[in-house]
């Protein structure tokens, strides 16, 4: 199915306030410094952490990235250990990092977020590894203990997944 290409280029915007311990400033980005911080920010532990890093783009948007090495697809023919549905979990974990960073709370204090529902999800063909997936989630609204996120995953300018993610607060799926 043809899809309009959307080039992701962070625009210079007013950044969020720095959050000690979680975020470092890099250019106009506020970036999560190390994966050890991700461990603090989401309930998942390795090997269930599906993003390498995450950063805030603006007050409503976060981005993350994940490098998929060649060894995850030894024959470069099929994605053996990496399934497209994993992209959804990557987007959800990026959103959870955003929520934790924006709340600026210590590990565990935020309350965990759980993927409650998905809508309008589309997957597109993945190239053969190695590649780096960029994950972009935009927070739309909170209501009734749930939050709506518009997410997309892309490799370069090639979109590989889009969808609406509904996260609920207060429980964990880790």
């Amino acid at each position: 199915m043809p899809h309009e290409k959307v080039s992701y280029r962070p625009k210079p915007r007013v950044p969020c306030a720095p959050l000690p311990g979680y975020i470092v400033t890099r250019g106009n980005r506020l970036e999560v410094a190390r994966i050890t911080n991700l461990v603090d920010m989401i309930p998942h532990k390795n090997p269930a952490i599906w993003i390498d890093r995450a950063w805030l783009v603006d007050v409503n948007t976060a981005a993350g990235s994940k490098y998929i090495p060649n060894r995850d697809c030894p024959k470069s023919e099929t994605i053996q250990h990496f399934r497209p549905t994993t992209l959804i979990e990557m987007l959800a974990q990026t959103a959870a990092c955003y929520a934790a960073a924006k709340a600026g709370r210590e590990a565990g204090a935020l309350g965990h977020m759980r993927l409650a529902q998905l809508r309008d999800v589309e997957f597109f063909a993945l190239p053969a590894p190695p590649f780096t997936i960029e994950l972009i989630v935009e927070h739309v609204l909170d209501y009734g203990g749930k939050s709506l996120w518009i997410g997309r995953a892309q490799i370069g300018d090639r979109i590989v997944c889009t969808g609406r993610l509904y996260l609920s607060h207060g429980t964990t799926n880790a």
């Binding site: 529902q117 809508r119 609204l141 909170d142 209501y143 009734g144 749930k146």
Partner: peptide, 22 residues
């Protein structure tokens, strides 16, 4: 369901500039 309630909140905000506060 409750997810639809969130969508309704989004629609009201977008089309009527009305905020639902839970």
């Amino acid at each position: 369901d409750s997810v639809d309630a969130l969508e309704i909140a989004v629609l009201l905000d977008k089309h009527f500039s009305v905020r639902l506060d839970d």
